[in-house]
Design a protein around this nucleic acid. Structure first.
Lengths: 348, 348
DNA sequence: TGTTAGCACTCGATCGTGCTGAGTGCTAAA
DNA sequence: TTTAGCACTCAGCACGATCGAGTGCTAACA
């Protein structure tokens, strides 16, 4: 059995209708709503074929058909039509990105908000990856006798800080010295590139200040190379609860328990970092059993051409792919541009 | 009609049972489970009295009784017995606070986790209030030609940063100058205390550097005095969904939509900051209509004796007050102590 | 006077039943 | 090849009967 134009029309009609109504679609409905010029009986025959081919399925004998994962896949790959944003929506996006920002986090957050607002599903945004951003400025500030704060500003506009213990004898001047050396050696390097050779260099630089070298080394080894825990923007979870597929509390609970595991989400999002364009994962294509009735739409944003993070939407498999793909595409571009504007001129 | 010992016993039994089972309690159940030495019939009479007095109510004619808000209030005020933590739980807390921390945020987060873990309800923690913490160190770092990063370390261990625009002519040295003046003038001051007189002082200090004074002033007026948006730790929402009162999706939705409004929660928590001991708000005592079937247990933690933030638990009105109050009390003390250990020695 | 046993009554929850309507597959005619 | 017609299926819903937990009242009892 081969797919032909009429089968495609019918499959498209079924998926369109199901996405809109969340109800199984019958042959009658299609004949009435989508003027394909054929009768319900004919449609029934074709639907039987489509079911054999695995594109649609029947929840029970006396119900209409719903798309299978394969059906959605076919839809996304071949049938889906681009859906432009309305001028109002375009305006909303533009306005949002034209506001003054004080922080990269703010850009991330705004993107996430737009994403969930425009799609009505849950939105996820992975902030610029720390490993690939470059040190811009590092400083140790003495706090008490035994503690100091390490502050590092990265060229991705993020600031990292942590409290570190210092031996009692260390003075503010010692910390200045270490700060100066670290600055000189690390400026412009990425976290990932702090290798042994570099550590050695710093070692020799500091060897004249014997008493602080221990601290400096420990600091490098431990504080800087240990990745901070993954953070992620997650919003619009409420949207997803409005979807009829989450009308039962058990489903809500499993979903929420997944969404609480940030690191899991980070991995899911990170999987597609670097791919061109928008990636759609349908149902079990997300490698996560409890999300088998969900789909994800993910795209990578870039800074100076290099992929640094990604944004994604999570919704039921019955999601409005056409719309979501358009929105994700748009926002990826806008986010890349916004970051470029904010951070592009930082190379002094 | 007056409350007597037997009525108290019965009320206590009803509330205890209802907290444990979430089912209306009948006279028979009480006679069977709680050996009060009286028959169901007598209990029925007393229950009728308790209902007249407003401490319990009947969901419908042929059901048992459930505590009213007034009943819970009476329970919390007069009947509730202290409930000690098990040695395992004590151990868990101790272990958690003995881990090395890199950041005040980490202490906050750990407290929140413990709170939700130990109570099985939702936990909220308000981080140390920024307005009352003192500047420890301020610095402007040039990023590009037109942007700089302002970093401020507070003695509450938090770090604030934001990107600011600078006029094109400003050099790194100018920024150093401003940094130095800001440091000298602001160190040890609180955000709240940055008043006009202080601003004037800084003005005169910088008057010799005419070209940067504009920037510095703007910075003070705008960046520093404008409060950053409220942050709050919120966790264990999943716990609360396991409570039978949230078995219907509508309730879950209204609750989640409330919990998404962080500023609202902050206000609720902040209401009780400064009060001694643990505050219990039952049902409509939380001034928030949509939370009328919830209760909050809140306590203030301190740094050097001064209240700086608060921690709280949110659960259904039918919550295990005895346990929650104990846990909140414990964690408040532990949190205060942990912050003291971390930040206490920072006065140089 | 306070306590208790007995009894009639109430009412939510549960379960079975039958009906309805949307939808199908099959057959035979166009 | 398409379509009209028809028998069949089955989830969802409304209806009614039954069940049982729990009450309030009354009368007897200590």
């Amino acid at each position: 059995m081969r797919m032909d134009a009429r089968k495609q029309d019918i499959l498209l009609a079924i998926i369109t209708d199901y996405i809109a109504t969340a109800e199984p679609v019958g042959s009658r409905t299609i004949a009435r709503k989508y003027r394909l010029g054929i009768s319900p009986a004919t449609i029934r025959n074709e639907m039987a074929d489509l079911e054999d081919m695995g594109y649609i399925e029947q929840p029970h004998t006396s119900a209409g058909r719903i798309p299978s994962e394969l059906g959605y896949r076919y839809y996304v790959d071949y049938l889906m039509k681009r859906q432009e944003l309305t001028p109002e929506e375009e305006g909303l996006i533009r306005k949002s990105y034209h506001q003054k920002v004080r922080d990269v986090g703010e850009v991330i957050q705004r993107t996430g908000q737009l994403l969930s607002q425009l799609t009505k599903y849950a939105a996820m945004v992975l902030p610029p990856k720390i490993g690939t951003s470059r040190f811009k400025y590092i400083r140790l500030v003495q706090l008490g006798f035994e503690q100091a704060m390490l502050v590092a500003i990265m060229d991705s506009g993020t600031v990292h800080h942590r409290i570190i213990d210092i031996p009692r004898g260390i003075t503010s001047e010692d910390l200045e010295t270490i700060s100066a050396v670290l600055n000189a050696k690390l400026q412009g390097r990425t976290m990932d590139s702090i290798k042994l050779t570099l550590v050695k260099e710093i070692y020799f630089e500091l060897v004249k200040h014997k008493h602080i070298i221990e601290l400096a080394m420990e600091l490098l080894q431990d504080s800087l190379t240990r990745q901070p825990e993954d953070r992620i923007y997650l919003g619009g979870i409420l949207n997803i609860l409005n979807q009829p597929e989450f009308h039962n509390v058990e489903k809500v609970k499993t979903l929420l328990s997944l969404l609480e595991q940030e690191s899991l989400l980070c991995n899911l999002l990170a999987d597609d970092v670097g791919k061109e364009g928008v990636t759609v994962r349908i149902g079990r294509e997300i490698r996560c059993r409890q999300m088998s009735n969900c789909s994800m739409v993910v795209a990578t944003y870039r800074l100076k051409g290099k992929p640094v993070g990604s944004i994604g939407v999570l919704g039921p498999t019955r999601m409005d792919y056409a719309r979501v793909v358009t929105v994700v595409e748009h926002l990826t571009k806008n986010l890349s541009r916004a970051l470029e504007d904010l951070l592009g001129g930082w190379d002094k």
